[in-house]
């Protein structure tokens, strides 16, 4: 069901007090995602003109923002903010595991770590695509969501390291071999390109543009989703929570209309910027 219609319906249902909302993402996670996609868009917008510096739009963009000096400044600024967010996230995970002794961080149904069920879900999903079996019943994080997470995680380390190696090349040259200075540019640009292509095509479609969520999955902005959506998208998690008697703990307030409108503006903007960058990337790549 398209999102617009669903929201309208939900608002009506809410008025009659029927719909219950459950928390999926904490505010910390939402802010992390906000910082992540803002800086990622910034990095992509300032990195692509460099990667395709021979294209017309790259030069026009560079001229428009005040030359490469400005581009480099914004690229480094976004990189520094994103690095900080990444480090806070890593610290947060280890605090939850080692200090708070929280369970399910590194293993179990709520963990981001892949398990056998993810492999079975992947195969089952393909079977369902082909009409050879039922739709897999997903837990808190589906396999493609875990892939998204680890892709970003790996990308952060790889792109981050290679980026800093270029930024502080004389320093890194003290312990890296000479050819590594050549390699970091290749790594940075290829991995950056992969991240851009992946996020602006695969992630956008899988998470936001597929018919189940079209045109945008609001949960990453509002943090909550309706009981109906919860049950349909992650039946295993829903049932587990019911079984463990923890479902009520996850109950949350319905999102305010300002929250939805704000989310839409931000989300659509991000998606549009991403799509434009994707088109530019593809035209430059194949042009």
């Amino acid at each position: 069901m398209p999102e617009l219609e669903r929201v309208a319906m939900e608002n009506q249902e809410q008025a009659s007090g029927k719909t219950r909302y459950f928390l999926r993402f904490t505010s910390g996670q939402r802010y992390l995602h906000a910082v992540l996609f803002t800086t990622f868009l910034g990095l992509a917008a300032t990195g692509l003109p460099l990667r395709f510096s021979e294209s017309v739009w790259a030069r026009a963009f560079a001229r428009g923002v005040g030359g490469f000096g400005a581009i480099l400044f914004f690229h480094k600024l976004c990189a520094a903010v994103l690095t900080l967010a990444f480090l806070i996230h890593v610290k947060d995970i280890f605090t939850r595991k080692l200090v708070n002794r929280e369970k399910g961080i590194f293993w179990g149904p709520t963990s981001m770590v892949a398990n056998w069920k993810d492999a079975r879900d992947l195969i089952g999903h393909f079977k369902w695509f082909l009409g050879l079996g039922p739709r897999p019943r997903f837990e808190r994080y589906a396999y493609w969501e875990k892939f998204d997470y680890w892709a970003v995680f790996w990308g952060m380390v790889v792109i981050g390291f290679s980026g800093y190696a270029m930024w502080f090349a004389p320093f890194f040259a003290r312990f890296l071999p000479g050819w590594a200075l050549n390699a970091v540019l290749v790594i940075h640009s290829e991995e950056g390109l992969l991240a851009i292509l992946f996020i602006f095509s695969i992630h956008f479609v899988n998470t936001h543009l597929r018919p189940d969520s079209f045109p945008m999955d609001m949960v990453i902005f509002t943090g909550v989703e309706s009981e109906e959506e919860f049950k349909a998208k992650r039946p295993m998690e829903y049932e587990r929570l019911v079984r463990e008697g923890k479902l009520e703990k996850r109950l949350a307030e319905a999102p305010g209309s300002w929250q939805i409108n704000f989310s839409r503006v931000v989300g659509y903007t991000a998606i549009v910027i991403g799509m434009v960058l994707l088109v530019l990337t593809l035209t430059a790549y194949f042009g």
Binding site: L50, R51, S53, A58, R59, A62, R63, G67, F68
Partner: peptide, 12 residues
């Protein structure tokens, strides 16, 4: 190289 990529962009 980075020298060229940067160099092709105007203003730098």
């Amino acid at each position: 190289t980075f020298h060229s990529q940067l160099g092709l962009l105007g203003g730098y």
